[in-house]
Computed example of a mutant assay.
Amino acid sequence: MRALLVVNPAATTTSARTRDVLIHALASEMKLEAVTTEYRGHARDLGRQAAESGNVDLVVALGGDGTVNEVVNGLLHSGPDPDRLPGLAVVPGGSTNVFARALGLPNDPVEATGALLDALRERSERTVGLGLAAGTPGTEDESVPSRWFTFNAGLGFDAGVVGRVEQQRERGRRSTHALYIRQAVRQLLGDSQRRHGSIILERPDADPVTDLVLTLVCNTAPWTYLGNRPVYASPKASFDTGLDVLGLSRLSSAAVARYGTQLLTSSPERGPHGKHAHSFHDLDRFTLHSKVPLPLQMDGDHLGLRTSVTFTGVRRALRVIV
Rank of each mutant, 00 (worst) to 15 (best):
M1C: 06
R2Y: 13
A3T: 10
L5R: 13
A10I: 10
T14L: 08
T14Q: 03
S15R: 00
R19T: 10
L22G: 07
A27T: 04
R48C: 02
R48N: 07
S53L: 03
S53K: 05
G54P: 06
V60T: 05
G63D: 03
L76F: 01
V90M: 03
V91F: 01
N97Y: 04
V98M: 02
A100G: 10
L105S: 05
G114N: 13
L117G: 06
D118V: 08
D118Q: 12
L120T: 03
R121D: 10
E122L: 10
S124V: 09
G129I: 04
G131R: 08
A133W: 08
E142P: 00
R147V: 01
F151N: 09
G154I: 05
G160N: 05
V161L: 01
R171S: 13
A178H: 06
A184K: 01
Q187W: 02
L188W: 14
G190S: 15
R194P: 09
H196E: 13
E202H: 03
D205M: 04
A206N: 01
P208N: 07
P208M: 06
V209N: 02
V209I: 12
C218M: 08
W223T: 05
Y225C: 04
P230W: 05
L243T: 06
A257L: 15
R258E: 15
Y259W: 12
P268I: 13
R270N: 09
K275G: 00
K275A: 14
A277C: 15
F280A: 09
F286Q: 10
L294I: 12
